[in-house]
Every structure is written in C-alpha cells, then in structure tokens.
C-alpha cells in the first residue's frame, strides 16, 4: 500500500512540476518572440502555434491540480442553512460529479483526440490531436483526485502556501 502511495506521489509531483515548467516555457517562447521581432526583424513561424499548444496543456493541467487543491469552490451560503448530515452527503455527490467530469474528459476527450488524428496544425504540421490529448491525460488525474476525495482522503499538497491573490 505504501509503495502505491509513493509511486502515486511521484507521478503527481512530476505532473505538477511539468505544469509549472510549461508556464516558464511560455514566458520563454513569448519573450524570445519579442526579441527576435524587435532585434532581428523576424518571428519563428511556429511561435504562435507552439505557444497556443503549450497554453492548452498548461491550462488543463493547472485545472486538474486545482481540483487536488480544492481551489474550484462553489457558493455555500445556501447550503449552510442545512444540517451537517445533508452537507456530508452533498460533499460525496460533488466528488462523484467531479469524478464523472474526469471520466468525460477521458472517454469523450479521447474520442475527439482520435477524430482529430488525421488533420494537421498549419505551421508545425503536427497532428491536431496533440492539443486534444490533454483532455484524457488530465481526465485521469481528475478521476484519481476526486476518487480520493470521495473516500475522505485529503489531497491538498500545498498547506504551506497562503493565498497570495
């Protein structure tokens, strides 16, 4: 059991670091574009396309990590009127719905990725599905996080980070 937990945490760490690195990569690509345009009067023709591709991956991975960190919150002023027991059941229902959303991304996201396999991106000529593949990948992560939360396992990994913004 501990072994599984360890492997899971490693995968999760890699996933998160990859997300943060893609943000840095985005800054790098865009600044490079500014400098080549201003100084040498040209822009790599793939620059915008690669930027958008990275952006889609960064965004979806960040969204998945957001589920792990309980960032996507709802409005609780109405449900606070109800007893604790009601809210406990509701917690389960919400976790189950998040799981269903993850499953949607895995299944339908995969279907769509396959459908997009035979068309290409205009600049790099990579298959269009490379963008959409982010759906099934992050879907798996969202499924795992919500499953753990369903069984009352706290998935937060950043207790030390106070809300800066």
């Amino acid at each position: 059991m501990n072994g599984i937990k360890k492997v899971g945490l490693v995968i999760d760490t890699i996933f998160e670091k990859f997300t943060l690195l893609s943000l840095l990569a985005l800054i790098f690509v865009v600044t490079t574009q500014v400098f080549t345009r201003k100084l040498f009067n040209f822009v790599f023709f793939w620059s915008e396309e690669v930027t958008l591709l990275l952006l889609a991956w960064f965004a979806f991975m960040a969204i998945a990590v957001g589920f792990r960190e309980y960032i996507h919150l709802g409005i609780d002023s109405f449900t606070n009127l109800f007893p604790k027991s009601f809210n406990k059941v509701l917690d389960k229902i919400i976790s189950a719905s998040v799981f269903a959303f993850g499953l949607y991304l895995v299944i339908q996201g995969w279907d769509f990725t396959v459908l997009m396999m035979d068309s290409t991106l205009p600049a790099t000529k990579w298959p269009s599905s490379i963008t959409y593949a982010v759906m099934p990948v992050t879907g798996v992560m969202i499924c795992v996080y919500s499953l753990l939360q369903f069984f009352n396992i706290n998935t937060t990994r950043h207790n030390d980070i106070e809300e800066g913004m």
């Binding site: 943060l20 943000l23 840095l24 979806f60 969204i63 996507h72 950043h158 980070i161």
Partner: peptide, 20 residues
Amino acid sequence: IWKILTRTMRTVSMVFFLIA
C-alpha cells in the same frame, strides 16, 4: 521561485477553468 509559480498557478487554475 516554486512557491511563486505555484501561487500563480492556483489563481490561474480557477480563472482558466472558468474560461474553459
């Protein structure tokens, strides 16, 4: 640096999920 990036990601995560 990681802390700063992580904080940014947290805010962005919420906003981007809403945009999507």
